[in-house]
């Protein structure tokens, strides 16, 4: 019984991390109608950058994260301006394939530079438990992930809903032509959106690096996690990603408990496929199409 409660708690905490992983993808999809297939690889790239800066250059994780975010913002702005904006008007397939190309390049560049070995970002919190009783324990690292996850989602919701910048983003999302006519530079908004998404991906990269081991080819795995979170929560709904992340975390942890840890990831994938089959617009989204 305690083990199930433990699984539920860990699942919910893991869900916070999954929400950060998925929220950037949800943003990009909701606003640009682009499935950012390089999202996972951008995240792992951020993990490597943070690791590099934290361990070799500045020695401080927060400073390293800041530098990483700046670098990733520049990179994503370049990707958006020089690659995606050139094909985004030609329909969904070319931009999907462009991002696929970007993901292949990132993944193989990482293999070339860092090698295929497992890496991790050291985290003092991951070994300390916040709550330590004989039956139930809560890992500090997971709790921090959860808090950061909720915070990131809330901040993004604030930006999108309350600020002037967010208003222009929403205008672009709901009617691109109309926004353009009212003086919004929609391609610039797309670039900013990708930047926001990549900033969350950088945070996700740090958390992933501190929680799990990562190597260059883990990108697709997190892409699928992100996609699953977004699909379960509803494409384009930021609050939904939090719910989607928690549901996915619960499904994974509970199936690990009932079927064994080897089946944990498969169970998550099957859950996503079931959701995609019965409610492609997500559990919580209003039917759009």
């Amino acid at each position: 019984m305690y083990i199930i409660i433990q699984s539920v708690i860990t699942g919910i905490l893991l869900g916070g991390l999954y929400a950060v992983i998925g929220v950037g993808m949800s943003l990009v999809f909701g606003i640009m109608r682009l499935t950012n297939i390089a999202h996972g690889d951008l995240m792992i790239l951020a993990s490597y950058f943070t690791m590099l800066f934290a361990m070799e250059i500045v020695g401080n994780v927060f400073l390293a994260l800041l530098i990483t975010i700046v670098l990733m913002l520049i990179l994503s702005f370049l990707i958006q301006t020089f690659l995606v904006n050139r094909v985004i008007d030609k329909g969904p397939e070319p931009s999907l394939l462009v991002m696929f190309g970007v993901s292949i390049i990132i993944r193989n560049a990482l293999i070339l530079i860092f090698g295929a070995n497992n890496r991790t970002i050291p985290n003092p919190l991951s070994t300390t438990n916040i709550l330590n009783s004989p039956n139930i324990s809560i890992s500090g690292g997971y709790l921090v992930n959860f808090i950061v996850g909720v915070a990131v989602v809330l901040v993004l919701m604030f930006i999108i809903q309350k600020t002037y910048f967010g208003m222009s983003i929403r205008a672009t999302a709901s009617n691109r032509m109309g926004a353009e006519l009212l003086g919004v530079n929609t391609k610039r908004i797309f670039a900013y959106t990708l930047c926001l998404a990549v900033a969350t991906a950088s945070i996700a990269g740090l958390l992933i690096g501190q929680t799990f081991v990562f190597y260059p080819s883990t990108g697709p795995q997190y892409l699928i996690t992100a996609f699953g979170v977004v699909v379960i929560g509803g494409m384009g709904s930021l609050g939904g990603t939090l719910v989607g992340g928690i549901l996915l975390g619960l499904v994974q942890l509970l199936s690990a408990h009932f079927f064994g840890t080897g089946w944990q990831t498969i169970a998550g994938y099957v859950f996503m496929l079931v959701i995609l089959t019965i409610r492609p617009q997500g559990i919580f989204a209003k039917a759009r199409r």
Binding site: T35, L96, Q221, I224, F227, V231, Y269, L276, T277, P280
Partner: peptide
Amino acid sequence: KMSGDFFTIGSWIVAEA
């Protein structure tokens, strides 16, 4: 049941599964 990009990533998920 999926269309467009959903099909793309859906097929990838199936392959990874």
